[in-house]
């Protein structure tokens, strides 16, 4: 375990969740997961497909309620979704009928921020993700990487304490993905937040994470390893220490074929 510090932001205690599939099958998805996340920490949840990591993230977001256990944020329990946690979705989930700008300003709009102010906020974050000149475009006119940058800006525009990213680059090609990782590191550096980043890509995890938790590769998901990545940023994919750690993680990844 990481040394307990007073600035714990999120605490998950003994979370379990079972889904009912096809109306009658009970599928246990995660079992007994406990996890602490410190303030402004970049935590990566690493695991292969179908290991319950997205469900864990959705529970923290408040989109699902755990069967047992609890999530606390700043020592108050999480009971539902709220604007203090921003989320970025794997399949972008942009509103096709809104322009880029209206997509980004949706969060402030829902909270009742006046038009001028929310425009300003939205423009600020569009600039942060480098899409200032695209504010009048519709999502279908953008590439995958650009769409996800809109998704990130949208989450940021609500000024959340926590950013939850659910395999955000899973649908991008390898090069765009690498570029987006660099961008994510840059944006996080400029606008520090507590981040929980779910991925199935080891390099992505090592490039971005302060800390990596590794989940077991079959259901029900449990956390079975944890790594502190104490390397200077910006990181280099070919750094020796990083590669050594990579080998270690691969060794300890429980592969289910």
């Amino acid at each position: 375990m990481t040394p307990t510090s007073p600035d714990i932001k999120i605490r998950c205690e003994n979370i379990s969740k079972t889904f009912i599939q096809k109306g009658h099958m009970e599928v246990p998805v995660i079992r007994d997961v406990s996890l602490d996340v410190r303030e402004n920490e970049f935590l990566v949840v690493l695991g292969p497909g179908q290991c319950g990591k997205s469900t864990l993230l959705r529970i923290i977001a408040g989109l699902e309620t755990p069967d047992t256990g609890s999530v606390t944020l700043d020592e108050s329990p999480v009971t539902g979704p709220g604007p203090d946690r921003g989320m970025v979705f794997q399949s972008y989930m942009l509103f096709a009928w809104k322009t880029v700008l209206s997509n980004v300003e949706l969060g402030p709009k829902l909270r009742g921020v006046p038009k001028d102010q929310r425009r300003e906020i939205a423009r600020k974050y569009l600039e942060l993700v480098g899409l200032s000149s695209f504010e009048k475009h519709y999502p279908h006119q953008l590439s995958g990487g650009m769409k996800q940058r809109v998704g990130i800006a949208r989450a940021y525009a609500n000024d959340p304490k926590i950013m939850l990213l659910d395999e955000p680059f899973g649908q991008l090609d390898a090069q765009t993905r690498m570029f987006m990782q660099v961008e994510t590191a840059r944006i996080w550096d400029q606008e520090k937040r507590t981040v929980i980043f779910v991925t199935n890509n080891i390099d992505e995890a090592l490039y971005l994470g302060d800390r990596i938790v590794l989940m077991r590769g079959k259901l029900p998901g449990v956390i079975h390893h944890e790594y502190l990545v104490d390397l200077p940023r910006p990181r280099d994919h070919t750094n020796m220490d990083l590669l050594r750690m990579r080998a270690k993680i691969i060794d300890e990844t429980e592969l289910v074929l």
Binding site: I20, Q21, G23, H24, M25, E26, V27, P28, L219
Partner: peptide, 9 residues
Amino acid sequence: MAYQEVKVK
């Protein structure tokens, strides 16, 4: 995998 069956009313 054998999952438990439940009835949903």
